[in-house]
Design a protein around this nucleic acid. Structure first.
Lengths: 250, 250
DNA sequence: CAGTGGTCTAGACCACGTG
DNA sequence: ACGTGGTCTAGACCACTGA
C-alpha cells in the first residue's frame, strides 16, 4: 500500500501537478484521500524522500525538490539499463571469455583462495555503434558457469542473474581518472593516455558473499557519474586513499 | 530516543560485540531492553540500515554487514575532513578570490539571475606539500561575503559555514575524467592533458536554496572516490548523459 | 494560534526463514 | 511450528512554521 501511494504521488509530480517548489498536501489529508492511517502515508513519503524527490521540515508542508537522478539501484550496475534510458539498444562485443585461476587481486576482491577457478570476461560496450566502455569482469566459478551460458552480445548480465535468483544486494564502487593503456586506446579508438574514468566495483549478496568484481573504463568525454546525498542518508563517502593506493593492477 | 538507540547499537558494532555477519537481537528484544515500543526500535534500525551498517530480510534477524566507508556527510564535502582522516594537516593556497557578476553557468547552477553578484574562489589544496586538487567555487553574494572573512588558507569553509548556522543539507555531485587544461597542469605541476578527476557539486539547503557550486579537479593518481549502495537505499545513480552533455564550461 | 511534521505507543495480521 | 521482520491502525504529545 505505501508503495502504491508513493508511486501515485511520484506520478503526480512527474505530471507537473506538483512542480519543484510546490508544497504537497498534508499527511492527514493524504491519509484521508487514500483511506489509510497516517503512518502508512509517512512511509510512502519517506520512500520519496530517500530518492531526493521531496524535502520535509518540522512544522511546514513537504516541498517538491525535483526529479531524482535515477530511479533504481540496478541502473548503477547495469550498462543495459543505462543505455535503454538513453533510448539506445544496449550492445556489447565480447573480446574475451576465459576460465582461469584467481590472481592475488581476484582473490582479494572476491574473497577466494588464490588459484581457485574464476571466469574472466572482457566486453566492449557500444552506444550508437561507438565504443564507450570496456568492461573487465571476474566471476567466482559457479556464477561464471551461469554467465558463460548467456547471450553476452545482447543480454544484461545483472538482469539475467537477477532473474535466475542470484541475490545481488550491495555494491561498492571506486572511481578514478586514469590514462588509457595501449589496449584501452585500441579497443576504444582513442589516442594513447586519453583520460578514462575507471569504475572498480565489487557486488555482494545480502549475506556479504562476493558475486563479481569488475574494472570498467569509460571514455572521459562520453559519460559522467552522478551522486546525490542528504544529511539523513549517510551512505556515500570519499574513499580514504591517496597516492598509489588502489594500485595499477587493472 | 531512536537516535540514542541507533548510536548505542552502532557503538556495540564498533566495539566488536556484533562482528560483521553476526545477527542482531530481535526487535522485540531491543524494545524490551530500552523500554520503548517496537516502532521506535525499528526507526533506530532504519537509521543504521540507511548507513549500510546492517541488512534485513523478512523472517530473519538483522545481519551486521560491516562499517560504512565514511561516518559523516561533511566528509564528502570537506577536503579538510578528508585530509585529517589521512593524518594530514589540511592546507590550501588561495589563487583567486573575486566578486563578479554571475555567468549563465553560475546562474543555472545557483538558481540566480545572470549578472547577480557572486563570489569566485580558486584554491589549490595540498597533501604533504604536494598539490592534489584545484577547487573553483562560486558562492551567492550573501554566502560569499561570509566566506571572504574566513582564514581561507587554513579553515574549512563547510565546517565554518555550518558553525555560523548555514543550513547545508543536500549535495549533488557529478564526476568525470577530463584532460588537464594549461592552467590545471600549471597549478598541479602535471604535464598537459594529464587525466584529472573532475567533481562538480551543487550544495543546497533543506528548502532547496542553492548555497554554492564548485568545480573540483583532482590529480588522477592521487585520489579515488568510493560509493556504496544497497538495494534499499536508492540514493545513488548514474547520470543520464552521454557525449558532450555536461559541457566544458569549467 | 491553528496546522504540520517528528516522534512514540500498543496493539494487530501476514509472509517469510530457520530449525 | 515458531519466531522474525514488514506492514498497518488509531490514537497521542510536542516543537516548529506560517499566517
Amino acid at each position: 500500500m505505501h508503495r502504491h501511494i508513493a508511486d501515485a504521488l511520484y506520478r503526480e509530480i512527474l505530471s507537473g501537478r506538483h512542480p519543484p517548489g510546490a508544497r504537497l498536501p498534508a499527511e492527514v489529508e493524504l491519509a484521508e484521500r487514500y483511506g489509510v492511517a497516517r503512518g502508512t502515508v509517512r512511509q510512502a513519503l519517506a520512500d520519496l524522500g530517500a530518492d531526493g524527490v521531496i524535502a520535509s521540515r518540522k512544522g511546514a508542508r513537504r516541498v517538491v525538490l525535483g526529479l531524482p537522478l535515477t530511479q533504481s539501484f540496478s541502473e548503477l550496475l547495469s550498462f543495459s539499463a543505462w543505455a535503454r534510458a538513453l533510448g539506445e539498444e544496449p550492445r556489447g562485443r565480447v573480446v574475451e571469455l576465459t576460465r582461469r585461476e584467481a590472481t592475488a587481486v581476484d582473490a582479494d576482491r572476491l574473497g577466494l583462495p588464490v588459484g581457485e577457478t574464476v571466469y574472466y570476461l572482457v566486453r566492449v560496450r557500444l552506444l550508437s555503434d561507438t565504443p564507450v566502455m570496456i568492461e573487465r569482469t571476474t566471476f567466482p566459478g559457479p556464477i561464471g558457469e551461469m554467465v558463460a551460458t548467456f547471450e553476452l552480445e545482447r543480454e544484461s548480465i545483472f538482469e539475467e542473474l537477477g532473474r535466475r535468483g542470484v541475490d545481488l544486494a550491495r555494491a561498492r564502487h571506486q572511481m578514478e581518472a586514469i590514462p588509457a593503456t595501449a589496449e584501452d586506446s585500441r579497443l576504444l579508438g582513442l589516442r594513447r593516455a586519453a583520460p578514462l574514468l575507471r569504475e572498480r566495483r565489487t557486488t555482494s549478496s545480502t549475506a556479504g558473499e562476493r558475486l563479481e568484481w569488475s574494472d570498467d573504463r569509460y571514455r572521459g568525454d562520453a559519460v559522467s557519474f552522478a551522486v546525490e546525498n542528504a544529511v539523513a542518508a549517510r551512505s556515500v563517502g570519499r574513499l580514504l586513499s591517496a597516492f598509489g593506493e588502489g594500485g595499477r593492477e587493472g
